[in-house]
Design a protein around this nucleic acid. Sequence first.
DNA 1: ATAGGGTTAG
Length: 552
Amino acid sequence: MLRNVTNDRSIHRHKSSDLWQRCTNVRLLKQIHASMLVNGFNSNASALREFIFASAVTISCTIDYAHQVFAFITQPDTFMWNTIIRGSARSGNPFNAISLYNQMESQYFKPDCFTFPYLFKACTKLCWAKMGFGIHGKVVKFGFESNKFVRNALIHFHANCGDLSVAAALFDQSEETKTDVVAWSALTAGYARRGNLGIARKLFDRMPERDLVSWNVMITGYAKQGEMECARKLFDEVPRRDVVTWNAVIAGYVSCGSNTKALEMFEEMRNVGEQPDEVTMLSLLSACTGQGDLEIGQKIHSSILEKGSRNLSILLGNSLIDMYAKCGNIQRALEVFDGMMNKDVSTWNSAIGGLAFHGHAEESITLFQDMLRSKIKPNEITFVGVLVACSHAGNVEEGKRYFNLMRSEYKIEPNIKHYGCMVDILGRAGLLNEAFEFVETMAIDPNAIVWRTLLGACRIHGDVELGQRANEQLLRMKTNESGDYVLLSNIFASHGEWSGAEKVRKSMDDNGLMKEAGFSLIESNNNMFVNQFLFDSKVNKSINILEGKDVS
DNA sequence: ATAGGGTTAG
C-alpha cells in the first residue's frame, strides 16, 4: 500500500485517494512519510500536497509535524502554502499563519484568493486588529476585495475585532453581499459579540434567509451576554440543531452559573442522539468544577477516555486538571498532568494553582521550578498560583522574591490579584503595618477584596485599630457587602468590645443590609467561614478561596 | 481546498 504513494502516480490525480482518505492518524502519517523519504521526498508534488493537507488539516494535533515536514519541501506551490497557513490559522498558535505568510512573500510567492480567508481567521483568533488592517491593505493591493470569500472573511474580521463600521460599509457596498447569508451572519455575530444585541437581533430578523449558522450566531450572542431566556427561546424555535447549537446553550448556562441546568441540557442532548464533541466536554467539565461535583466529573473523564483519542488534547487535559483540583482530588489532577504528552503554560498553571489552593505549597513551588526548567514561560496567572502557595506556606521572603522576579525577570506587571496575594502574605504573617504600607504604595488602586483581606488579617491578629481603618476604606468603596460588617463586628466581639459589635450591627441595619437567614451574626469561626465564603463568592471566585482559608 | 457558529486556566 505504501508503495503506491510514490510509485503509482495515477492515484494522485483524484482529489483524494483511498490511501489519503484512510490516513487519519499519526502512525499512518509517519509510515507514509517514511516511504516518501525512501522514494525521494521532493520528487512527487501531488504526494507532498496530500501529505501537507493530511498533517495540517485532516488530522488534528499534527500541525507541528506538518511544520517540520513543510520545512523540507524544496519548492512548495501555492496550494501547499495555503494549506499550511490554513492549518496554522486554526491551530493553537495562529501566529504561525502570519509568519508563514511573511515567508511566502519574502520568497516572492503571490497569495491567491484562498490565502486571505485563512489569514483573517488567524487575525480574528488573535484579535490582532492592526495586523488585520495591514492584511486588508494587501487584499486591495492584490485586487481580491471583490472576491466573495475574501470579502466575507474581511467582514468577519472587521465585525469581530477590527472596525465594525468598516464591516458594515463592506456589507453595504455590494449587492451580492446583501443576499449572502454568510455575510449577514458574520455581521450579526460581530454586533452580538460586541454587546450590541439589539442591532444583532434586527439583522437576524431581517436576513433574507437563515441557515443553521445564523441561528447559532444569534443563540450564541444571547448566551454569551447572559441573556439565557432569549437564547433558550430561540433554541426552542430553531428548525434544526447541531452540536454547536447545543454547545451554545450549555456553555451559556455554565457561564451564568446554572451548572445543573447545563448538565440537564446535556442529558437532553444525549437523549435526542446528538454526539457531544470536545467543546461540549469542556463546558461540562466547567459545570462540574463550578458545582464541585467530582462524581459527574469522573464520569465525563471516563467518557472522554472511551471516545478513544490516544492522548488528551491540551484543552481537555487542562480542564480535567482544574476540575480534579477544584473538586478536591489533587492526586487525580496530578495524574492527568503527568499523563499529558503536550503541555502548555495553562497546563502548568492549573497544576501549580491546584496544588497551591489545596495547601500543598511546597509541591506547588517545586512544580513551578520544574516549569522554569522545561523552558515554559510563566505568565501572570502562574504567579497568582505561586504567590498563593507562598501565602499558604507563610513564606514571606519567598513571596516577596517571586513578586519581584515576576517584574524584573518576566516583565509582568502585577495586577490586583498579585497585590491581593502579597497583602495576604504580609497580613497572615502578622506584618500588619507593612501590609498597610504596601497597600498605600501600590501602583494601582486597591479594590474591596484587598481591604477585606486586610480586615481579615486584622481579625486574626486582633488589631482593632487597623481593622477599623481597613473597614473605613471598605465602606468608602460602598460595596455594602454585609460580610464586611460581619468581619468587623467579629473583631470587636472577639476582644470583648460588645458595644463596638453592637454599633457595627446597627450601622448594618441602617444601611438596609440583611444577613442571609440561617447564620448568626457573631458566632464560631466555622460560621464565619461559611459567611465569608458565601459573600465573597459574589465578588470574586478566585480570591474567596484565599479568604475563606483566612478565616477558617 | 476557500468564508460565517462552539471551548480550558486565574
